[in-house]
Nucleic acid binder design. Sequence first.
DNA 1: GACGGATTCTATAGACTTATAGAAAAAAGG
DNA 2: CCTTTTTTCTATAAGTCTATAGAATCCGTC
Lengths: 199, 199
Amino acid sequence: MTGTGTFKYVQQRQTAIRAAATVFAEKGFHGACTKDIAERMGIKQGSLYYYFKSKEEALGEVCLYGIQNYVEHMATIADSEQPFEAKLVATVTSHLSSYRERNEALKVYNDERLYLPKARRSRLKKLGSDYRQRLEGIFEEGKETGAVRRSVDCHFAAQAVIGMCNAWGDLIVRDSELDLFEVIQKCTDLLINGFTKQS
Amino acid sequence: MTGTGTFKYVQQRQTAIRAAATVFAEKGFHGACTKDIAERMGIKQGSLYYYFKSKEEALGEVCLYGIQNYVEHMATIADSEQPFEAKLVATVTSHLSSYRERNEALKVYNDERLYLPKARRSRLKKLGSDYRQRLEGIFEEGKETGAVRRSVDCHFAAQAVIGMCNAWGDLIVRDSELDLFEVIQKCTDLLINGFTKQS
DNA sequence: GACGGATTCTATAGACTTATAGAAAAAAGG
DNA sequence: CCTTTTTTCTATAAGTCTATAGAATCCGTC
């Protein structure tokens, strides 16, 4: 039935998650139908239920897959021994790179997670707010070391970084020609000028 | 039939648009059903079609209603005789205020417009890109007068402003306790520090 | 090549939605 | 108060979609 640890099963479930990510990103959770997802992975609609108990479960897996990566990465960045600016650059780089690597999953997390059943949503919410808090911590640390201007509101700053990354992430997903490193460069430029003391 | 200019008709169509905005914002275009919208305005599902030819038309009207306001306002700002910083503040203020005043419609424009039929979508797209171009123009002007740093990419800057406003707008719609003017204050602070020369 | 589990298929029940048609009610006008 | 117009209602056709059940196929192993 389900949950078997076969080789193919694990592999195919992964493809299923990616397929779902693509379709959800394109049509939204409610606009997408299970037939679309199944077709994209080359199986028939009914067969999809071999991998997911329900459409909602598929959404949950996509959302998790979307943020896992950069949320885990954040712990490393925050705990590292780098100066404020380097941490900020690392954060933006990690966040925006995730949009390229994981393609649509992160976008789906941002746009569709509120359609998840409550239990699953609050688990994800925790990951999200951990992320924000750690970022906030980076700003506070920056204030202590004198890198960040005294007048900066760290909570606001963290939110602004995330918001900006997501806004650009959307464009990155939509337009594959967009130069990722140019975007990273300009975002960090704006943020460093906006938040740090001029030397 | 339709299109009559009766008093009540005009008034009710307006309520219909607002009702649709709320429901679309909450459940997304595909997740919302015409019954939800009708109920919210106190009529039965079928009666909604007295005001809209289709669900898609409703979405179109909501999107238009969402941006009309601040897009029109932009022309005034761009053409005015203020220094760069004042124009930037005015833009952010106008954009974020729209989120409060027009409630969900602007959010719907951002999140759901891609589900519109092509013809309608491209008309809206034009409004959106006019907006961005004018904002870009403000930055270019700022560069000429020396307010904006030479290294700034005006196209990027305009996109960043819009992205940041939308990210905060989302939070503003979701959390009605958020202090609008505090957000405006901090956003403009970040942007001015990020893009202009320090005095 | 027969067995057993893993994977996919077909078919369908049941629920929900949009949009329309025509009747009914309400409001306006003379 | 009767007529006309506007607005809302009920009922429903036609379509779509999720999820399940049971049959069929694939595939490695003995």
